[in-house]
Amino acid sequence: MTPALDVLLPHYRDPAGLKLSLSSIAAQTWGGRMRVIIVDDGSPEPDRIEAEEVAQEFARTSGIDMLFLVNAQNLGRPKTRNRLLDAVEADHVTWLDAGDIWYPEKLEVQFNHLSRLRMAGVDIDRIWVTGAYDWQQVGSTSARTLQQQVQGDQVLELLDGGNLRAYLWTLLGTARAFRIAGRFDERLPRLQDLDYFLHFVRGGGKLVVPEDNRPLCRYFKSDIGRNAREVHACHKLILAKMQPVIQTQPPALRSKLHYKANRLAARFAKSNGNRLLAANYLAQAAFGSPRHTLRVFKSVLTGKASRA
């Protein structure tokens, strides 16, 4: 029997995180038939064996269908995600990354919203339901709740990343809606989610949020081990792909986007202890986007002044 929902879950060297994620799936209040598809991306054998045991235990105790696939070697996240897409058979699709969790009502809230949209005559095959989430830095005990703002031009909002962020594990949509986004760009070891979201919106898709704006999932954020140069190169490639869109925007926005690409790379470099590289990216941000740098300085000074 075909499941109503396929949950796509890439895994690499994190059996404990996988266990955490699967527990949150088992705790969902939504009662439809689902299948969890896990692709292990060539983890070292002990991790892979442990992950498979965790997955089998999850299937046995929860009664949820589970498919565990293995990449013979580490192919990277975009290829792994494409393999997950190839395995989809259900009418609906959602994602979760090993190590992150859903809150119990996540699927129920999102399915209810999709039903309401369908009843209202909306073409839900062009819709992704996202929602608020809790963002917790690994090592910290507190989390902050972030809302997804879906108003305005979603392409520009995704590029800006301030109000609308490209996180796959926030989504629920029909399999047809996911076809709009195509496939993950395998040249993007980082930020491929952003590229995937942009493709979805440019291809006629739309992100929506449920009326109930409580957080639906928790993201455990860590910059550790993420190569700043790789992040920077991926960001630059995405901006190059989006150049025809960006060039229609005012210079201030263009300056801001290039500033943000360098600032993000600087953050990763700093988090991984490479202060020289971080300074280099900050300098690129300052000199490459002087207009936005001045705005940032101005707002910092204004903030300090107001606090004072």
Binding site: D125, R126, R176, R179, I180, A181, G182, H199, R202, G203, G204, G205, P244, V245, T248
Partner: peptide, 8 residues
């Protein structure tokens, strides 16, 4: 759906 038009 999915077809993108872009003006260079």
């Amino acid at each position: 759906p999915g077809v993108i038009a872009v003006n260079l």
